[in-house]
Design a protein around this nucleic acid. Structure first.
Length: 278
DNA sequence: CGCCAGGTGCTGA
DNA sequence: TCAGCACATGGC
């Protein structure tokens, strides 16, 4: 059992903020995957208690996964530039942007387009059960996220049978791009935001929004600002009487919030999605 | 049943 | 550059 300090952090808010689609909760513990290992984790006071299926998933990677190596208060100060984001921060302080595996993030958000989170979770779970490697921890069984070559080798009709709909050919084509070496996900970690986004836009089924999600959640590009229907709705508040295309909203947001615009996006996204329920 | 969902690709102005 | 449209599917 690993214990690590987790100041300025809310595990629950972070895992429920729509960044990751494979976390679940059973009797007080959160179960999910970090890369290809199962992680069992719970927050107690200012610490995380962790148990992992694989020795390769150590404290360093867990700390990085949850973004605990960054000082949240500094980031939040830098984006706290108007009353809307101020309210979102006040309500959900502790939310952090995850650093997930780039391939899993890319594949997941291709599935996420024009879709709802419940169904996205179901689609991904079926993909894992059908094409991922089985793994178990303390008798708890699960399936790893399928590797690109497994997806690339699967006929389109089989992917459609997983409920992917028209996204099936997109996912397969993108997997092929990676298998054939025409897109290096490792490279995306090293290059800057613009270069990473341009490369991602070369994938089938990847437009501005999905590319920004992958850049932000899978490539640590904190200036990425994904705009989906919820964010468009949220930002309408910023421009009450003007019609704005997503491209214009995107330009504005990046300039307005600065190098951690992605954090602002995630706080605003979570905030507007919970306006009704709280 | 109708509406919505962490949109994209394509077409035509 | 931007608007309009088709695209699959299931949750609510």
């Amino acid at each position: 059992m690993i214990q690590l300090p987790a100041p300025e952090f809310s595990l629950k808010t972070t895992l429920e903020s729509g960044q990751a689609f494979r976390w679940s909760r059973h009797d007080g513990w959160c179960y999910g995957f970090v890369d290809s290992a199962i992680l069992k984790v719970k927050q107690v006071d200012g610490h995380l208690l962790c148990d992992s299926s694989d020795a390769s998933l150590g404290p360093d990677r867990i700390r990085r996964y949850f973004g605990l190596d960054l000082t949240l208060s500094d980031i939040l100060s830098s984006i706290d530039v108007d009353v809307q984001i101020h309210e979102a921060i006040a309500r959900h302080r502790g939310l952090r942007v995850l650093r997930q595996d780039a391939w899993e993030t890319l594949a997941s958000f291709i599935c996420a387009s024009f879709n709802n989170i419940k169904r996205i979770e179901g689609m991904i779970e079926r993909l894992c059960q059908a094409y991922g490697e089985p793994i178990s921890m303390n008798g708890c069984r699960g399936f790893r996220f399928p590797r690109p070559d497994a997806i690339a080798a699967t006929p389109e009709r089989a992917l459609r049978a997983m409920g992917l709909g028209y996204r099936a050919p997109y996912l397969r084509a993108t997997a092929r791009l990676i298998v054939e070496g025409r897109l290096s996900l490792a490279q995306l970690q090293a290059v800057d935001y613009d270069a990473a986004k341009t490369a991602l836009l070369g994938c089938d089924g990847v437009g501005d929004k999905v590319a920004d999600c992958v850049a932000l959640f899978g490539c640590q590009k904190y200036e990425a600002f994904p705009i989906d229907v919820w964010m468009e709705r949220a930002m309408r508040y910023y421009f009450r009487h003007r019609r704005m295309t997503r491209a214009r909203l995107h330009r504005y947001a990046r300039r307005h919030f600065g190098p951690y615009a992605g954090y602002a996006q995630q706080y605003l996204y979570h905030y507007v999605r919970h306006l009704r329920s709280t």
